[in-house]
Simulated assay, not measured.
Amino acid sequence: MTNSPTALTVATDITSLETDTDGRTLRRRRNRDAVIASLISLIQEGDLDPTVANIADRAEVSHRSVFRYFDDLDDLARTALETALRDALPLAVIAGVGTGSLDDRIEGVIAARLRILTHTKFLVRVAKAKSATLPEVDRMVANVAAMNRDQFRRHFEIELAEMEPRDRAHVTALLSSQMGFEGYDHQSSVLQRTDEEIADAWRLLMRRLLV
């Protein structure tokens, strides 16, 4: 005669099943995060269009498994860019925004812009390229640009308040564009200028526009 399963046996089986399920979920999340981190690190090292093989090898997962976690490469790129740029935002923070002398505020914004731009320059290049076909990335790039303009308005509120509205808008646009990704990348990559030279150019620009 076969014995019926005891309550203890059933409870043990359920616990074992839950543990196995939790383990698979954890492994899936860990592998997915590893793929995202792999793509981010490859881009930051200058590989702007890494292959699935390179991404998978860096993440230490099988090549086929990459598409278990993402619909396609665009889905992976979108997720990685959103993750990397969101995590990098604290680098753009200016300590004591809007406070101190003009010279102090100029140095503060230069330090913040160099921190964020040197860290994200390859990521932003990829984001700009992807923005033409991925609306979510396009909105993300636009949001970052809007945040930059708002930061300049708050940081130089004293000087901007003394200008006519049209001039105020022009100055804010010039500062945010010249000290944004495109301005930095042009000086760094096209003109081959060092960060120190770029910082000197920014100082000159801000003093001419704000004094």
Rank of each mutant, 00 (worst) to 15 (best):
W202G: 00
V52D: 05
N31K: 11
I14N: 10
G23D: 10
E82Q: 15
A127W: 02
A142C: 00
R68S: 13
L76V: 14
D167S: 13
V171I: 14
R125Y: 01
R125P: 00
M163Y: 06
A112F: 04
A59I: 07
F156G: 06
L39F: 08
G183Q: 08
L175N: 00
A84Q: 08
G183C: 08
T19I: 05
R125A: 13
D75L: 02
L76A: 14
T25A: 14
A146N: 02
S62W: 00
L73K: 14
W202V: 11
A142I: 00
L85N: 05
S177V: 09
R125L: 07
L42C: 09
K128S: 08
L89Y: 09
F70K: 13
M206C: 08
M140D: 02
T2D: 09
A146H: 02
M140R: 11
T21S: 11
T2I: 13
L73F: 09
D75S: 15
Q187E: 11
S131G: 03
D167Q: 12
T79M: 03
R139S: 12
A95S: 14
I106F: 00
Y69R: 07
A7H: 08
P50M: 07
S176T: 11
A84N: 07
L114S: 01
G23R: 13
L76M: 06
D33V: 02
A92H: 09
R153N: 10
F152M: 08
A7Q: 10
V97M: 10
G183V: 05
D103G: 10
L209E: 01
T12R: 13
L81R: 09
A59H: 12
S177N: 10
R64T: 15
A173P: 00
H63R: 15
S188Q: 04
T51M: 03
S131E: 04
A53I: 12
H170T: 09
V144I: 12
M1A: 14
A146E: 07
I36Y: 02
R193P: 00
H155G: 12
R168V: 07
F152A: 03
D104W: 02
E136R: 12
D49I: 02
R64W: 06
Q192F: 04
P90A: 12
A34E: 05
E162R: 14
R193N: 06
L39E: 13
L117G: 04
D87Y: 01
A127H: 01
E18W: 04
T2G: 11
M140L: 15
T9E: 15
D20Q: 12
T99M: 08
A84D: 10
T118E: 06
K130C: 05
M140T: 03
D138H: 09
R28E: 08
M163P: 03
V126M: 05
D74Q: 11
M179A: 06
L85K: 10
A7G: 01
F156N: 01
Q44R: 15
A169D: 14
